[in-house]
């Protein structure tokens, strides 16, 4: 029984991390209809950003955030403008381009760091709290809280602010939004910027938890895709809840079957969801098909 509690706790904490990584990915998908293969690399860049803040300025990762988030927002906006805007309505080329970006970022970081693994200490990184008789890392709890805050904040932003409403209008009907005077290109840049900043946020928060390597981005992107498919494409709530489903599945599979097979189990769940309910738990029916359907 204690084992089960332990495993579930691990799963929930992991789920918080996946939720954090997936929310931005799903926002980008829902609004711009682009599947960003490089999203995991943005998380990885966030981790290295936190490391740079620590190594050069002795900044705590939670402080580095304040500088990194605006930078990531700008970076995302630039990527959208220069790389993705020209590829509107060309789904295959979008895959090539974002996958190219994935390869580029991963290997540039590899070349710069020569593959040395780094870790980022934070005053709280060693601290733990006893919960149900289990030691839980404070950094993981912070990540869980941040995932919740990010999902709630993003939801409020989309519902209650003018830019948020404009983003939702574009997501629902690009043509109508254009007619209403919304500058769609600008909304795309803002959306991609927010999605990238959320990945950067995830990276900063994960820096004290994981040891840094250039390849770590790919280990986030697949669970994040599973989360997005599970939770429903384009749904913020779905990404949040889906994160916990995948996190728990991974923890349970890792404990009761074999850690080596956890991906196989996630993939099995993934395929099952696709067959039973291709639109995901919270998604609109048919959303999985919009990948090739232009919205014009």
């Amino acid at each position: 029984m204690a084992d089960l509690v332990n495993v579930v706790t691990v799963g929930i904490l992991l789920g918080g991390i996946y939720a954090l990584v997936s929310v931005g990915l799903n926002l980008i998908f829902g609004v711009i209809r682009i599947v960003n293969f490089a999203q995991g690399e943005f998380v990885m860049l966030g981790m290295y950003g936190a490391y740079a803040g620590y190594a050069f300025l002795r900044l705590d990762p939670y402080v580095s955030l304040l500088v990194l988030l605006p930078l990531f927002f700008l970076f995302g906006a630039v990527v959208q403008r220069l790389l993705l805007a020209p590829l509107r309505n060309e789904p295959s080329m979008q895959i090539f381009a974002t996958f190219g970006l994935l390869m580029l970022i991963e290997n540039v970081v590899l070349a710069l760091t020569r593959g040395t693994a780094y870790s980022v200490p934070s005053p709280v990184s060693q601290a733990g709290i006893g919960l149900f008789g289990i030691q839980v890392g404070v950094v993981r709890l912070i990540a869980l809280a941040a995932a919740t805050a990010a999902a709630v904040g993003l939801g409020l932003f989309l519902r209650n602010t003018m830019p948020g409403r404009a983003i939702r209008a574009v997501a629902q009907d690009r043509a109508a939004a254009t007619l209403m005077g919304v500058d769609v290109e600008r909304i795309y840049m803002i959306t991609f910027g927010i999605g990238t900043a959320l990945a950067g946020l995830a990276g900063c928060l994960l820096a004290p938890i994981y040891s840094l390597s250039p390849q770590i981005g790919t280990s986030f992107i697949l669970p994040a895709f599973a989360v997005v498919v599970l939770g429903g494409l384009g749904s913020v709530l779905g990404a949040y809840v889906g994160g916990f489903v995948v996190g728990l599945t991974e923890a349970l599979a890792g404990y009761y079957l074999d850690p080596a097979l956890k991906y196989a189990v996630i993939f099995g769940v993934f395929v099952l969801v696709l067959i039973v309910r291709p639109s995901g738990l919270f998604g609109k029916v048919g959303a999985e098909e919009v990948g090739l359907r232009d919205q014009s």
Binding site: V35, Q94, I95, L274, I275, G291
Partner: peptide, 19 residues
């Protein structure tokens, strides 16, 4: 099963399959 998905989602599923 994976051919139900189109475009990028097919790509994601096949990428997951590699893992």
């Amino acid at each position: 099963p994976v051919f139900r998905l189109r475009g990028p989602f097919f790509a994601i599923a096949t990428m997951a399959f590699t893992e």
